[in-house]
Design a protein around this nucleic acid. Structure first.
Lengths: 161, 161
DNA sequence: TAGCTATACTTGAGGACACAAGGATCATAG
DNA sequence: CTATGATCCTTGTGTCCTCAAGTATAGCTA
């Protein structure tokens, strides 16, 4: 008997749970695939790419490390390590801040810019294939709207009433 | 200047990318919070819970390890390690298969059943709070439908045409 | 029967990330 | 000017998970 548990059992009749489970599975499936393609072709993690693209679109192609952390939803220590990697590949550099010597900027190097531009098209195509292509234009907008209502930030002070 | 990069820059006008980025951020934010609550109250990982609940709803409260892996979207080795943990806590046990001695079943113990039943309500409430409550009944169904079109499984043989 | 391939599972090594603790700098209040 | 507290960043440690490799069993073919 071949295993026929094809999909995560949708173990509940509650639509909220069904939606949540699909959300979880879809995330796992898509990011796994996206990651492995990005890794294979460009030697980048999904988080690496995420950081690079944020820098790419930032003013002066630089960002404070802490802002970077918040925008890609990593902790400060996560960013330190991730940037360590990107620095040793020469994709980003450090810059000090004159007005506040606590902060260090991460700056995209020329190589970093090039890397982003190389990686971008195929990655966007992958996203389109695995994600976007499933929906009509109208559905995309609606999906974006629905997802936009979810917490998109650290819910740090989740204090129970 | 306080940091005002509140949200991940939505760096593209393309709705597909916007939706994808929100999907990514929402996943990070929600699972982080969900995890930390589950951990704090019940000493369970999100994956632990996921595995336990799958077993809970399975016939005979047992499942082949491989099927478990597929349904929670972990690799075989991931499941081995995860179950090691749950076994040492006494929440699941092993059982051999008579007809095929390669397979081992993971079985929920009494303690495991109890654990699931303890954890379930608060976890479902958390999901409702962080996820479900953002949507009307109709929106939930629609969201579930949209998410259901995404790949929910390993796209192992993603062979380009 | 032997041989080949596929499947189920485990183990070693390594990566990505979190948390906690510590150092440096800044801002504010006495 | 000093004390206090907040903010930015790094480092030590540990956890979860993956990949690659290895073992054991199953089943098919000749």
């Amino acid at each position: 008997m071949p295993s026929q548990v094809l999909i995560a059992q949708e173990v509940s009749a509650e639509p909220s749970i069904t939606a949540w489970l699909r959300f979880l599975r879809a995330h796992a499936a898509i990011t796994r695939e996206l990651s492995s393609r990005l890794e294979a072709v460009h030697e980048l993690t999904l988080s690496d790419y995420d950081v690079l693209i944020q820098l790419y679109h930032a003013e002066g192609r630089r960002l404070r490390r802490i802002d970077l952390a918040r925008s890609v939803l990593l902790t400060a220590s996560g960013i330190t390590r991730l940037l360590d990697g990107l620095e040793s590949c020469g994709l980003v550099g450090k810059e000090n801040c004159d007005s506040d010597r606590r902060v260090t900027y991460a700056v995209l190097t020329e190589a970093g810019v090039k890397k982003v531009e190389e990686a971008r098209d195929s990655h966007l195509a992958d996203i389109e294939e695995l994600f976007g292509s499933r929906f009509s234009a109208q559905e995309r907008e609606q999906l974006a709207e629905l997802l936009g209502r979810l917490p998109l930030q650290h819910t740090t002070e989740a204090c129970s009433a």
